[in-house]
Design a protein around this nucleic acid. Structure first.
Lengths: 220, 220
DNA sequence: TATAATGTTAACTTAATGTTAAGTGATTGT
DNA sequence: ACAATCACTTAACATTAAGTTAACATTATA
């Protein structure tokens, strides 16, 4: 399940949010200051950070900026908690790299739907393409088949990508060699088959079809 | 390279997007209003249009609708830029003929991957040739006869392709052997007939005619 | 009608692909 | 720098579909 970090200096808010989020099935970790949060995320990468803007010490905006500079957190979403009518900080917050904001006083229902929405939106916007049960993530070079994550090697990834670039089209061995191995590389004639076999193991033999005499095609 | 038109009333956005897209090698043109955009595309057909929904004057949705009525732009893709949580306009935008949408604030990486994805997705029509009820798909190596898909073996495909290359022309056995089997291959004299029979089963005996003493021809 | 050409069928042969495991080279972490 | 791991390639062998053949049936035309 998704991991959420809440950062707020008020103990009441931490408890209140923590209770509501845990009830929804999220894993929740907490921090009372920006410093504590920055320290925490070094070994504990959350999927979402809910960050209070107004905090003693380094405030939410600074914390956010520091977080955005950490490569580990590149896929982590950040939501700001702002006091009502604090327009300026909303704008500053978005510049600082936040993905959304929620105004206090917090209504649990509102917050939860925003959280769901932001996870959903982020899913849509991540760099992937899906073909039926087969989902290719261009960022992580991973294949998700029927919800199950599988990592692909470079050749497998290139090969699958080629086949998926035109589902249904038959790619002959020359085209495959040209595209995946490059024009001048010479490899034995069973090499392609072996990679096809591995891809078939990671998906299901149904998706990659052999067209004897011509080559291979991807269908879904 | 691909040409992209950005339409947004905010100068900052134009600059920001323009910079990021040019850096990726795209040719970028810009417009500040829907009117300007509509005027611009008359002589300058982009491959992709990134269109802000909220604009003074005619908004993005209206602009999109007008564009979709221009035959010149039939192959042009449109991506909407929407403010956050603007769910209604997202739906309306897709109805208006947009191909995708991206929410503000814009993350260059997200936008670029969406652009790549959309170009990828859209390069998906296969090339084929049809002769009456007979349709040959060069990509899938399949035959579609009266809407019914049939797969062809290599010899069947080569043979059908030869006959279809000049409908009406009679190909004698020597020509067929030369073209489909290659000059030096020697096969028995019933081999061609067997393949013709199989092709006739997959289409209908009406399409491939025997010209006794000479050879075969394809008619439609 | 006679006969040479083509149609049809099913068994047979071959070429293409599938599979496996071992070997080789590259990459990673310590 | 080193070991350890991982990706990739290779080659032998297994399997399968495509292609071929030959016997026999049918048809068109002189």
């Amino acid at each position: 399940m998704k991991k959420i970090l809440i950062v707020d200096d008020e103990k009441d808010i931490l408890e209140f949010l923590g209770y509501n989020l845990r009830k929804e099935g999220y894993e929740v970790i907490e921090a009372k200051t920006g410093d504590e949060a920055l320290h925490l995320v070094k070994n504990n990468i959350p999927d979402l950070i809910i960050l209070d803007v107004m905090m003693p010490g380094i405030d939410g905006i600074e914390t956010c900026q520091s977080m955005r500079e950490m490569p580990k957190l590149k896929d982590t979403l950040i939501i700001f908690l702002t006091a009502r009518n604090e327009d300026f900080s909303q704008i500053a917050g978005l510049d600082a790299g936040a993905d959304d904001y929620v105004s206090k006083p917090i209504k649990p229902k509102v917050l939860l739907s925003r959280i769901k929405a932001i996870f959903r939106r982020n899913q849509t916007q991540s760099d992937l393409e899906s073909y039926g049960d087969v989902e290719i993530n261009y960022d992580t070079k991973q294949l998700k088949f029927k919800g199950k994550e599988q990592s692909l090697t470079k050749k497998e990834y290139d090969l699958l990508l080629l086949l998926c670039s035109k589902p249904g089209k038959v790619f002959n061995r020359e085209e495959i060699l040209q595209s995946v191995w490059g024009g001048d590389v010479v490899v034995g004639n069973r090499t392609i088959d072996v990679h096809i076999k591995r891809l078939r193991e990671k998906t299901s033999s149904d998706y990659i079809k052999t067209v004897k005499g011509f080559g291979y095609k991807f269908i879904f």
